[in-house]
């Protein structure tokens, strides 16, 4: 045991925890008795009726296998594969997210460079930032008149703030000595921005982008529960209405896995731009 690396030991512990947790879960779910074994009294009080209980992990795994072996089937508006649902959600998240990045990063750059712009825009940012993105939904639905675009707008509005604030913060905090290096080498404004300020602020900017994508993925589930139609949020709500708790648990797990993957992508990007002084 002692000659094992920390990673190996951690992996073993993770698996033990996973199996112990699943086993415990499986054990605490009482198995439903067959109607024949019920007493007269139980039958009279409805004990024999089909009752939806919390499914054991074995059923969830079965469901996962069934769903993941054919993720892209499309059998009408209320019956689409998990892959299609997640695809819709990712599309909405990325569309809103990149629109936000397109505005937040240049605007953040400006705010970071100019103390006047910072002071002028700060009150607006401070008021708009704490608003729950879902509070925009009714207004968005009324103005945009399209549920799909409204969902994208909600993602846009929730992911813009961390990127905007982090970009401004990162740009404002660039070491003056590095800017002086650019100045003494007669780099123009544009080259200074791209060769010095952007790489210097990149770690902070990417951190903001990473926070934003996390928030966007949290918000899309709630937004899709409201707008309906497609997406993983809609899928969860639809399966709840179907009282199919196995699918609900399966989709909860899928939301976690996709969120982790999105975050990991930005983790890679972060490693790429990080530098040490």
């Amino acid at each position: 045991m002692t000659d094992m690396s920390v990673n190996k030991r951690a992996a073993i512990l993770s698996f033990i925890l996973l199996f112990a947790g699943l086993l415990l879960w499986e054990a605490v779910i009482p198995g439903q008795k067959a109607a024949g074994e019920l007493t007269e009294y139980e039958r009279l009080t409805g004990g024999g009726a089909q009752k939806a209980g919390v499914p054991p992990p074995s059923q969830v795994l079965e469901k996962a296998w069934e769903q993941l072996s054919d993720p892209f089937y499309d059998a009408g508006p209320n019956d689409k594969g998990i892959g299609i649902q997640i695809g819709y959600s990712i599309y909405r998240v990325l569309a809103g997210y990149f629109l936000a990045a397109l505005i937040a990063i240049p605007l953040g750059f400006l705010i970071g460079m100019s103390p006047v712009a910072y002071k002028a825009l700060n009150p607006f940012i401070q008021v708009l930032r704490p608003i729950s993105p879902l509070a925009w939904m009714p207004l968005a639905l009324f103005i945009i008149q399209d549920s799909e675009t409204s969902a994208i707008f909600v993602i846009f509005i929730c992911s813009i703030w961390p990127m905007l604030i982090n970009t401004a913060f990162g740009v404002a905090g660039v070491r003056k000595d590095w800017v002086n290096v650019a100045r003494t080498h007669e780099l123009g404004a544009l080259r200074t921005a791209f060769m010095v300020i952007l790489p210097a602020a990149a770690p902070t900017i990417v951190t903001g982008m990473r926070i934003s994508i996390g928030i966007a993925w949290l918000v899309i589930v709630a937004a899709e529960m409201l707008v309906g139609g497609t997406g993983i949020g809609y899928y969860v709500w639809n399966e709840w209405n179907n009282l199919d708790l196995t699918s609900v648990i399966f989709s909860i797990l899928m939301i976690g896995v996709v969120g982790m993957a999105l975050d990991a992508m930005f983790g890679v990007l972060q490693r790429f731009v990080v530098y040490s002084e």
């Binding site: 070491r175 000595d177 590095w178 002086n180 290096v181 100045r183 003494t184 080498h185 007669e186 010095v196 790489p199 210097a200 990149a202 731009v273 530098y275 040490s276 002084e277």
Partner: peptide
């Protein structure tokens, strides 16, 4: 204003750490 005619070596931080 600064110019390439006058090169400067600072005590610290005159190198760009990401290059």
């Amino acid at each position: 204003g600064p110019s390439l005619d006058r090169g400067v070596v600072f005590q610290n931080y005159s190198l760009l750490p990401w290059l």
